[in-house]
Design a protein around this nucleic acid. Sequence first.
DNA 1: AATGAATGAGGCTTCATTCAT
DNA 2: CATGAATGAAGCCTCATTCAT
Lengths: 210, 210, 210, 210
Amino acid sequence: MSQTLAEPALLDRRTQILEAAVVCFAKHGFHQASMHDISTEAGISVGLIYRYFQNKEAVIAAMADRHKNEISDLLERAGQAPSLLEALEIIFTAHCCEDSPKVLSAFVVDLYAEASRNPAVADLVRDVLDTAMDGVTKLIARSPEGQNAPHGQTPRELAELIFAVARGMLMLDILQPPETTAAERRARQLGVTRRLWRLLFKSEIETSYA
Amino acid sequence: MSQTLAEPALLDRRTQILEAAVVCFAKHGFHQASMHDISTEAGISVGLIYRYFQNKEAVIAAMADRHKNEISDLLERAGQAPSLLEALEIIFTAHCCEDSPKVLSAFVVDLYAEASRNPAVADLVRDVLDTAMDGVTKLIARSPEGQNAPHGQTPRELAELIFAVARGMLMLDILQPPETTAAERRARQLGVTRRLWRLLFKSEIETSYA
Amino acid sequence: MSQTLAEPALLDRRTQILEAAVVCFAKHGFHQASMHDISTEAGISVGLIYRYFQNKEAVIAAMADRHKNEISDLLERAGQAPSLLEALEIIFTAHCCEDSPKVLSAFVVDLYAEASRNPAVADLVRDVLDTAMDGVTKLIARSPEGQNAPHGQTPRELAELIFAVARGMLMLDILQPPETTAAERRARQLGVTRRLWRLLFKSEIETSYA
Amino acid sequence: MSQTLAEPALLDRRTQILEAAVVCFAKHGFHQASMHDISTEAGISVGLIYRYFQNKEAVIAAMADRHKNEISDLLERAGQAPSLLEALEIIFTAHCCEDSPKVLSAFVVDLYAEASRNPAVADLVRDVLDTAMDGVTKLIARSPEGQNAPHGQTPRELAELIFAVARGMLMLDILQPPETTAAERRARQLGVTRRLWRLLFKSEIETSYA
DNA sequence: AATGAATGAGGCTTCATTCAT
DNA sequence: CATGAATGAAGCCTCATTCAT
């Protein structure tokens, strides 16, 4: 009976530590955040972290993995949206959550920075991106407006552009003044999303009616 | 008489140090690169760096400033291109230089990561971005194809999209396998640039002739 | 009723732990072996060790005590040997057991190293040595060849020399390449033992007949 | 001119650190002595040690090397002694120096303990021993009393016995009560040396005259 | 009796920075 | 102007020990 309890407890601790780690990593960066910072944020002792992670590197790797799952969830949610536009809106505004303003953008950019020197992280991030791109490609392919994109661009090409814009907006999001509210950041993202959507999927004539 | 000589020498030393710093920063990241790394790369002693920069922070700040100038130069060159497409091509392929593959992408992404926690760097990067955006906005406004963009998007809005894509491509560039050649990366960037240009500036009908 | 059971159980646990401790101590040294190592080797939990030993120091002390008993047993066995030479052979080859090659040598040398800074261990080891020396002195005194040693050396003096050689051989044993078999190490020990015995107890003339 | 100075300075620092290290290692053991202990004993900062040694392991290795040189010097001195007995006396009393009582014995025993788990140290110690044994073998071979040892033992065999006794006495030396003076320890060593010498090199008859 | 999660002090090592030369 | 030896704070990690279950 302790086994059925031990498993979740173990997972919970890991989750608790990772939860603290995102905060610290987003606030200070992977390598500027100390293990002590994380343990304090998590409300536990430093040593305990090492019961659940082999070392700091492993925490970073787990964070990357967590990111993979979150993107996965995001795509899932986007896939269930009633329209392509709404799906894109979900994808483009995922990081504008009230509770941890700017946290996600900084974290993701840091993740890419880390990927540039840590091959393991690079592989993971690449994998995430490929999966995500495939997902969006399918989303486009099955949507009505994806059937005849302007200039005959393929769904894959459109997905690539969409992702470039999404990652780019993440970088620009970092530069928003710290006092910017989540709502404001969200509004901005929505604006860009719609303009992008119109460009990619609406021919001139149709749009004039909109 | 030493003053007329001192000034350029001083600038040269600073340049020499910064030149070494980009290499180290791109290779290891701002905070993973040690002052010793930089001094070794520059072929000088550690102490000498402190004669030209108050501390490591100042080196990072100077690097950000250097980035500003480089973007400035880039815009200058782009502004002299014969066509908008060519201007965009210059902007989008600036980081694909033979000598230091992937160096610039990693550096810029790191710079944004740093901006997310260092307000001084954030201000500088924001300034760079604003200036660059203004430049491109003007480029678009004065170009023939910028006159009537699809969906009535303004030059500013188009510039925003362009920059989002440009920054996004930088992030994606990081994920390229290390063995990717500069030429391959350049080709990819050019492909995206052209597709983006067509989308933004070519109406469906015109394009069919292209 | 649990008491009659508890006693042996308690001793068994202690023995089990000490059994695991020798292995770990010999493999890593007293202070390099962690309590966790010992608990794993013993197949129990860390906490349990503290039920039977106050702390690591106490484990080491108990190990020293165990060593005392083992030397005691060894002398017992040696005392029952039919001849002095055979007694010496038993003493000199005790550590060449098949199952844990080199284990004992390393452990004993470590014990002496520990004795040099831990007075409690020093006292114990000294006690062991004195007792052992007394035993061997008696062995010599009662043996025929011990009656007239060359140069009129007393049984005590001879025992001292014997023990110096025995401890010294232990140190040298450590330097044997790891692949050396117990049999080889035993053969070497026997050779030295016999040469020593001849020197100490055989006059030149008698020997020429042997 | 700074180069001719830099070299000795570098060597001096290393020597200074090693000098401090022997003290700490002998007092606490290799792994119980902290880098901080060593730096304090040497009167320098912790970080400075790392300018001269890659890590603690390297300090231990250097200590082992130092030991090799000291044994080398010792043999040199012993080789110049007028008689074999005096040569042996030098070898057997080397560790009984006034200034650091018991330091050397503890250090050497620790070195052997370390050798039992650190192959690099084992190789070095083995090498030291072989060289030393060769030296003593030669000493014996060239000495008058070495010509006809009792029982026809070869110089090599005699050297082996001598070294076993020497290492063994080192171990026993550790057990001397801490208040034992260097003179007392020296006296004891001399006693053993002479008895050993008589046994190995003096026939019964000659001795009766002595 | 037994477990193993949790703690936190302490060890090794790095690195920004200073300063005598 | 230039060097690089020196410092010491701080980071990562281990481990003896405790305690709730």
